[in-house]
Amino acid sequence: MVDALDMTLYNPVRAEIQDTAVGYGGTQKSTALPPLPPVGYANRYASTTSTKALRFAGEYYLVVHLAAQVGDRFGDGPYGLTLRVRVGGRTQDGPGYAARSAPRGIFDVGTPDPEPEAAGTAHTVDASRSATAGGDPAMKAVAVGGIGAGSLLLTVLGAWTLTARRRAAAQIRANAQNPTA
């Protein structure tokens, strides 16, 4: 038996939530992730890591890996894979905030998904709801000033180091020309 298949669920910020693995010996195998609690803002206060990871709105990713050793031992395939995903629950509004986020739209996840009961609907990502370019002019000034000050500091330190090395080399040459012993 070869450790063959690894299946991992990731949240929208690519943090691992739960994983499972199964070996392969040439016959059909099955594995499943344990049932997880619903995604919710309140999960940020949960005591378990896997529940805490379910606090982000957005798209969750299920990644399936097949080990290269399977091909080495059982040939190049093809290998059949049936993936069944069951999602339950209903969409809920997020927490209410006292003010709007700045920049606007940074935490938006697009249009709400259709309810899980609506079979046959495709999920699409609304790119028009992403954060707009531009931003706050004051923040641009802070960024330019910070980058400019950092660049100036690095230039001054580089020149200071170069000058110190040249002086040290000149001192060594002078000492070599006038030995005191």
Rank of each mutant, 00 (worst) to 15 (best):
V2C: 03
D3E: 13
L5A: 03
L5Q: 00
D6L: 01
N11V: 03
E16K: 15
Q18D: 13
T20F: 00
V22E: 03
T31F: 06
V39S: 02
V39R: 02
Y41C: 04
N43Q: 06
R44Q: 14
T48E: 12
K52M: 10
A53H: 10
A53E: 11
L54D: 05
V63E: 08
H65M: 06
G80C: 02
T82W: 00
R84D: 12
V85T: 12
V87T: 05
V87R: 05
Q92G: 00
G94H: 01
G96T: 13
Y97I: 00
R100W: 08
S101Q: 09
A102S: 14
F107K: 06
D108G: 00
D108M: 01
A118S: 10
G120N: 06
G120V: 04
V125H: 11
T132V: 11
A133M: 12
G134K: 02
G135L: 09
A138F: 14
V142R: 11
G145I: 00
G148Q: 03
G150W: 02
L153I: 08
L154P: 01
V156K: 07
G158L: 13
A164W: 08
R166S: 11
A169N: 10
Q171G: 11
Q171K: 14
R173S: 14
R173K: 13
A181N: 11
